[in-house]
Design a binder for these strands. Structure first.
Length: 415
RNA sequence: GGAGAGAUGGCCGAGUGGUCGAAGGCAACCGAUUGCUAAUCGGUUGAGGGGUAAAAAGCCCCUCCCAGGGUUCGAAUCCCUGUCUCUCCGCCA
């Protein structure tokens, strides 16, 4: 979280970025509040000084066996007069902190006000027939069953069956192997439930609260992405310079309420409450983070390229950037059945925004500095599966398994 | 779930009511010295906030010894609650 002094000194800049990220925060109110805070702080400090001094004197008197009763009554009055102010100060301080917690990360200068195509559409396939969408495909092949999913859980859940379930599992294993064996990641199998603090440090809270599943009894959050547990592994750690970069990857189920998103692109697997994702998180030196961002994009792209799926890369515009991100690329795959570009990976540099909230630092000359964190989906399966099913379908309604996946599925086609 | 032990600065670790923001060690930094990347000696080194100052330095002050309450003129030290770690018992994948 931003330091209050920093906010004070960068009000205009922070206000601008907040607005661009779609948050209208009351910086004017903050100014006023902060002014109050300062004067109140002065008053309270002055009282405490007085109190400390007199309290010490009481000690001295008592040790000498002298009478301290007049001092004691003075102290009592002093205390009475100021408890209210102390309470006020506490309240203001809390308000100030709450306000600051809502200020989003700043944005890298290379981010535009419009989305930018980084990689033009590549590998679009020609069909000699009209491709069917994954919903009908999945139904006729008996590998996807949304009906059953809603019986068990509710709408906008998915249920994979038979070879569909195996294919899903194959994708996850394929990606994990790729990143651990080829890209040098340490694999983590994290808790899927995380505490409120973890959700705060990565920047999901306070903004995205309505989009979270929360367990009633224990107040735990179902993680919306493995980014949350992975990043928090190092929370409040001070690392040696030689320990970074650190590269963690993990599979996790991801849970999102998707509040308010009904109606748009919600068919079939396009937007569901629970999905699978392999996530990559890097912890790097601040000077390295933008090189790492490019590198992460490449690592995520390898998945798509090995599966030979049509795709493109977009650099997000300012207003599309998430709360915590300074710069983000999206990888989108094309799905000919639904005729849509689908986001399967988001690659972001958070700079020191998350590290600041989580207290992740390295030792540098003369003290410690916050490191930079980045993450990339590597990648999310539902839309990947959609693109795979729809691109690898035959005119007979079968699905051919791409070569790299066959060792994982043990079958070459479905249908 | 029950019983007990613990949580102190970058790290280790002392400290059971005042003069403790905290001994000591290590590490780091600065300097000195030694004919060589080591040794020795001296010094410095936590964070946040308020004030003063054009700003920086400096100076003054407040807060922070897991978190939140409480007792007390005064709490790192005593009491309560919570979190986490460790040990034992129970229960259970």
């Amino acid at each position: 979280m931003y330091n209050i002094r920093f906010v004070e000194e960068h009000i205009e800049e922070l206000k601008e970025v907040s607005e661009k990220k779609g948050l209208s925060l009351d910086f004017q109110g903050f100014r006023k509040l902060n002014k109050e805070r300062k004067s109140l702080k002065g008053e309270v400090d002055e009282f405490r000084r007085e109190k400390n001094k007199k309290g010490q004197k009481v000690g001295e008197l008592k040790r000498e066996g002298k009478d301290a009763s007049s001092l004691l009554s003075e102290l009592e009055d002093l205390k009475k007069g100021v408890t209210k102010k102390e309470k006020e100060l506490k309240e203001i301080q809390k308000k100030v902190n709450d306000f600051i917690s809502w200020i989003p990360n700043r944005v890298h200068p290379s981010v535009n006000s419009e989305p930018t195509v980084i990689k033009e559409p590549t590998g679009i396939k020609k069909f000699s027939f009209t491709p069917i969408d994954h919903i009908n495909l999945g139904k006729s092949l008996g590998i996807l069953d949304f009906q059953l999913a809603s019986t068990v859980a509710g709408s906008h859940f998915a249920l994979y069956k038979g070879k569909g379930a195996i294919l899903e599992r194959a994708l996850i294993n394929f990606m994990l192997d790729l990143h651990t064996k080829r890209h040098g990641y340490t694999e983590i199998f994290p808790p899927f439930l995380v505490n409120e603090y973890s959700m705060f440090t990565t920047g999901q809270l306070p903004k995205m609260r309505d989009d979270m599943y929360i367990t009633k009894r224990d107040g735990l959050f179902l993680n919306p992405t493995a980014e949350v547990p992975l990043t928090n592994i190092l929370a409040n750690k001070i690392l040696e310079k030689e320990e970074i970069p650190i590269k963690y990857c993990a599979y996790s189920a991801c849970f999102r309420r998707e509040a308010g998103s009904y109606g748009k692109e919600t068919k079939g697997l396009l937007r569901i409450h629970q999905f699978n994702k392999v996530e990559l998180v890097n912890f790097v030196h601040p000077e390295e983070s933008y090189n790492t961002l490019e590198h992460l994009l490449k690592e995520a792209l390898v998945v798509i390229e090995l599966l030979d799926l049509p795709h493109r890369v977009i650099q997000l515009s300012i207003n599309e950037l998430s709360f915590a991100s300074a710069k983000t690329y999206d990888i989108e795959v094309y799905a000919p059945g639904v005729d849509k570009w689908l986001e399967v990976s988001s690659i972001s540099n958070f700079e020191d925004f998350q590290a600041r909230r989580a207290g992740i630092r390295i030792k540098e000359k003369g003290g410690t500095i916050h490191i930079h964190t980045l993450n990339a989906s590597g990648v999310a399966t539902p839309r990947l599966l959609v693109s795979l099913m729809e691109n690898y379908q035959t005119d007979k309604g079968e699905i051919i398994i791409p070569d790299p996946l066959i060792p994982y599925t043990d079958f070459e086609k479905i249908g």
